[in-house]
């Protein structure tokens, strides 16, 4: 038994060394890489696209072919086929439908083109993207620490502005935030103190559900809220303000996009901060990894973004230009 395992691994190692020894067939001087964005409708993905284009310009030997998956699996598939027709060397896919992942990968495999997947994994593609659970934890821990310092380690209630219809990724962020908070705060919240609300990913909807929930916790004066993104956080704060209970709430979120940054830097802001996803540097990590794949250098199957919890204090280290009025008075 044992012998067979050893032999087998030896054989594999040999095969591997053989292939390494061979000349890398996909290596070239100039590369044409297809990038299909999730959608062009939201800031986050626009920043991802810009970062990839500017990273390509920085590298000099990479040409980018752009496409838009429009949040739709079928579109992603047809984009894949277009890329193959256009003769790209590698494909970077940012696409939403896990069900289409297999088909897309099969097409690319047949054409001998390597694929990287952003944020939503596809079988056989090198993953690059957010480390959703840990990104969530960063925000949860920060909120827990804030409660320990300012509210004697105990909150009265927690509002969870989640996005149940969108599956595992937002769920991982929410779980990360919840676990991070509970593990940090002195007095853990009980299940009865936690209100799970459907943000539907819009400001108005979070405004409405938080507005509807606040009357049911009239005695809570120390309310924490964990939110799926900046917009949801803004809606939550606006609802508390409309109910005259702005000073009773403290909110953390995910994203740290411009509208969220603006909220953090306000005087007496109730937006403690948000985990940064830095879509603006996706390109700097994605393209070198893609070139490594093409030039047959070993690449980890999953590459995670380095997240930072952005607050009023460290904002200017990352976004000095965006928040010039605040950072360079």
């Amino acid at each position: 038994m044992k012998l067979r395992t050893v032999l087998l691994s030896l054989l594999l190692a040999f095969a591997a060394s053989l292939s390494f020894a061979q000349e890398c067939s996909t290596a070239k001087d100039n590369y044409k890489i297809g990038f299909a964005n999730l959608t062009e409708d939201i800031v986050f993905t626009q920043l991802v696209r810009e970062s990839i284009v500017s990273a390509a310009e920085g590298l000099g030997n990479v040409e980018i072919v752009l496409a838009d998956n429009k949040l739709d699996g079928a579109t992603a598939l047809s984009n894949t086929e277009n890329f193959i027709t256009q003769g790209v060397d590698g494909i970077i896919h940012f696409q939403t439908d896990e069900a289409f992942g297999n088909v897309i990968m099969a097409r690319a495999r047949n054409a001998g083109i390597p694929v990287m997947a952003i944020d939503i994994p596809m079988p056989g593609a090198v993953f690059f993207g957010a480390d959703n659970y840990n990104a969530g934890r960063l925000a949860g821990e920060a909120l827990g620490n804030w409660v320990n310092t300012n509210w004697d380690g105990a909150a009265d209630a927690m509002l969870v502005l989640e996005l149940p219809q969108s599956g595992p990724i937002p769920a991982a962020r929410m779980q990360g935030m919840l676990d991070g908070f509970q593990d940090t705060v002195t007095t853990k919240l009980s299940d009865e103190q936690i209100y799970r609300l459907d943000s539907k990913n819009t400001q108005e909807e979070s405004f409405r559900v938080v507005g509807d929930t606040l009357p049911s916790i009239p005695d809570a004066t120390k309310i924490v809220a964990i939110t799926i993104n900046d917009g949801t956080a803004l809606g939550t704060i606006a609802a508390a303000e409309a109910a005259g209970r702005k000073d009773q709430i403290m909110v953390v979120g995910q994203g740290a996009d411009p509208s969220g940054q603006e909220e953090m830097v306000k005087e007496d802001s109730r937006y403690l901060g948000a985990t940064g996803y830095f879509p603006e540097n996706y390109g700097d990590k994605l393209l070198p990894a893609m070139i490594d794949i093409l030039e047959c250098r070993p690449v980890a199957p999953a590459i995670y973004q380095d997240h930072v919890f952005i607050t009023k204090e460290n904002l200017c280290e990352f976004y000095a230009d965006e928040q010039a009025a605040f950072c360079k008075p």
């Binding site: 409708d41 400001q203 108005e204 917009g231 803004l234 809606g235 606006a238 409309a242 509208s259």
Partner: peptide, 15 residues
């Protein structure tokens, strides 16, 4: 009124 309530405007508002 939506924008005034939220003190912000968003293209995804009123979906």
């Amino acid at each position: 009124i939506i924008a005034a309530q939220l003190a912000s405007s968003a293209p995804r508002a009123a979906t």
